[in-house]
């Protein structure tokens, strides 16, 4: 099954919708709650990254009985130094975003820690793409 959710940059009010939908589906499948939590953490962090940094983006989700694959593609500033962005606590979030409680860094490393497979590609000035795969019956990453 595949699903697509659009994300609007700057719209924190509606961030989290995709995570909630995905969470419900995983509960229906009877996926272990610790795995659901890892999926939701990854998806929510990645979604908020788009809201905080990009103009708009799209979440594509492919779900089967064994795996969930989530691809988040955005049109945005991109990440100049991915290695730096992958470090804990590193953030380029604006002061307004931080004031809302977002932008504390940790986003990308947190996704990486919770995903079974994580690929990030970025083109400065164009956008960023994240591919996250989590095994739904597997053990902790």
């Amino acid at each position: 099954m595949s699903f697509e959710y659009k994300v609007t940059g700057g719209d924190f009010t509606h961030a989290g919708y995709a995570s909630s939908q995905v969470k419900k589906m995983l509960k229906q499948l009877g996926v272990d709650s610790t795995i659901i939590k890892r999926v939701v953490v990854c998806l929510y962090e990645a979604e908020v990254n788009i809201v905080a940094h990009a103009y708009d983006g799209v979440i594509n989700i492919v779900l089967d009985a064994d795996n969930i694959f989530m691809k988040l593609t955005d049109n945005g500033p991109g990440i100049a130094d991915i290695e730096m962005a992958m470090q804990k606590g590193y953030s380029t979030a604006s002061p307004e975003v931080r004031e809302m409680g977002f932008g504390a860094g940790m986003g990308l490393p947190n996704i990486s820690a919770n995903a079974d497979r994580f690929i990030i590609t970025s083109e400065p000035g164009r956008g960023t793409s994240l591919e996250i795969t989590i095994n739904l019956s597997g053990t902790v990453a």
């Binding site: 229906q28 499948l29 009877g30 009985a65």
Partner: peptide, 20 residues
């Protein structure tokens, strides 16, 4: 103990078929 009301079936493949 959990008593999930969402789970469609104890069998993952069957749950997947039901969800589809």
């Amino acid at each position: 103990k959990p008593r999930s009301m969402y789970r469609l079936s104890g069998d993952r493949d069957e749950a997947m078929r039901m969800m589809k």
